[in-house]
């Protein structure tokens, strides 16, 4: 067995062990379903309610992906480039960015609801504001720390500013970008669900809220499991993308053989 397989096996055992422990403890300590349902119950709920849950899953995924990947990434990259390519802009705007990013994003949900009413829009916007700042800060840092030597190569060829940005700055920044994107995607997931909980009649967040007020505790937990699975899936998706784009940074031997 290779080292990699052994780690996978351990990881899998830990996963199974966690739920087994939960199941066993609930039975032994005689915990009520209303407090903490057993994993087997949650699984049954998940299975029977899945047709009802499916549209809500899509709704949450939609809000997260539009907010994070479409809006958040494009705005984040654009702002990051703006701040990162100019030394002055970098020093001037950095304090403001740090200020913005330290605002608890929960606090902005009511503002969005006030402005746009309840529904999908606040969920998308919450997902967006959560992921924008890590992306801006990382893109800006990546660009600002690009080795001047690398830029000089293109400058001597008479390259324009935008050519230098496309051929040196942005590729050089990709590892930073993906590092922030992986954090951002999970965070904006939280944001979208949060907004759905507060002000929406669709999405997993709303399902959990309703289920909780109806004492359908196992459904609440089913919602949590769905969120965890989606989170892991999105993270894995971006990791895969990252490996393809920034394999050079980790000296990935698999991408090198051409």
């Amino acid at each position: 067995m290779t080292e990699k397989q052994r780690i996978r096996l351990w990881s899998f055992s830990l996963f199974i062990g966690f739920f087994l422990m939960w199941e066993v403890l609930c039975i032994v300590l005689n915990v009520s379903d209303l407090v903490l349902p057993r994993p087997s119950e949650i699984l049954v709920t998940l299975w029977t309610k899945f047709p009802i849950l499916w549209p809500h899953i899509l709704q949450t995924l939609y809000s997260t992906l539009i907010g994070d990947s479409a809006l958040g990434v494009s705005i984040g990259v654009a702002l990051g480039v703006l701040v990162g390519t100019s030394k002055v802009a970098y020093s001037v705007a950095y304090p403001l960015l740090v200020g913005f990013s330290s605002i608890p994003k929960v606090a902005v949900v009511p503002i969005f609801v006030l402005w746009f009413g309840s529904g999908t829009t606040p969920a998308i916007l919450t997902a967006m504001v959560i992921c924008v700042f890590p992306i801006v800060v990382n893109i800006a840092t990546g660009l600002a720390t690009t080795e001047p030597d690398l830029e000089d190569v293109l400058k001597t060829l008479g390259a324009s500013k935008s050519e230098i940005l496309w051929n040196v700055g942005l590729p050089r920044t990709m590892p930073y970008f993906f590092a922030s994107l992986k954090v951002a995607i999970t965070l904006s997931f939280v944001g979208a669900v949060l907004s759905e909980t507060v002000a929406s009649n669709r999405g997993i967040g709303n399902v959990m809220m309703t289920a909780s007020s109806n004492f359908q505790v196992s459904l609440v937990f089913a919602g949590l499991i769905i969120l965890a699975v989606l989170g892991v899936m999105l993270y894995a998706l971006f990791s895969l993308l990252e490996r393809h784009v920034t394999g050079w940074a980790t000296r990935d031997t698999e991408i090198a053989i051409t």
Binding site: L150, D152, V153, T156, N167, W248
Partner: peptide
């Protein structure tokens, strides 16, 4: 102009 710098400065990606 073509320039070869002291360090090879190949773009690593």
């Amino acid at each position: 102009m073509g320039m070869a710098f002291q360090n090879p400065t190949m773009l690593p990606w």
